[in-house]
Amino acid sequence: MKKSGSQEGKSPSRLIDERIEELGDWRGEMLGRLRALVREADPDVVEEWKWRGVPVWSHDGLICTGETYKNVVKMTFAKGAALADPARLFNASLEGNTRRAIDFHEGAKIDAKALKALVHAAVALNKSKARR
């Protein structure tokens, strides 16, 4: 018998929808907006649900994650250190050699153009590595 609220059999997209709904506050709105921008930037993006409940967007490899915490929505780019960031969106996880993240706090404005450029750059990097 399937438990009420079970995630079994649900698509990753549906699980992300549910996460946005269950948050019910600014974090859900922020995650929904970030998700929309990723999908606008790359209509071929694949949505996944990993690590016990983290929305993940991939295209020829991991692009980024959308984690939600009490005071922040964190968008972590798997290969962010290799991406140009002229708008200086990255503001977290700056010390590592691979990942970079953007912490969005309540009321934060999203630079949609710059964020989409990061998504495009991440996809291009994944595609270049996939061809090898």
Rank of each mutant, 00 (worst) to 15 (best):
A87P: 04
T98I: 03
R52L: 05
V73L: 12
D60R: 11
A117S: 10
I20W: 09
N97D: 08
D25Y: 00
A101V: 02
H105I: 11
S128P: 01
L31H: 01
D17N: 15
R52D: 08
W49I: 02
V45T: 11
A81E: 06
L62A: 07
G24W: 01
K50N: 12
E21I: 05
K127S: 10
K129E: 06
W51M: 10
K109W: 01
A101I: 01
A117P: 09
L23W: 05
N71P: 04
L125N: 03
R88P: 05
L83C: 07
K2W: 00
L118S: 03
G28C: 12
N126E: 04
L115T: 08
L34I: 15
A84K: 07
V54L: 08
L118D: 00
E18F: 08
G24P: 07
H120Y: 04
G61M: 01
K10F: 04
I16M: 10
L89V: 11
V46G: 11
V73T: 13
K50L: 06
L118Q: 06
D44W: 00
A92Y: 07
M1S: 09
P55A: 09
G9K: 13
G66W: 01
V38S: 09
A81C: 10
R35Y: 05
W51P: 05
P86M: 02
I16V: 15
E67D: 14
P55E: 00
A108E: 14
V38F: 07
A112I: 06
K74E: 12
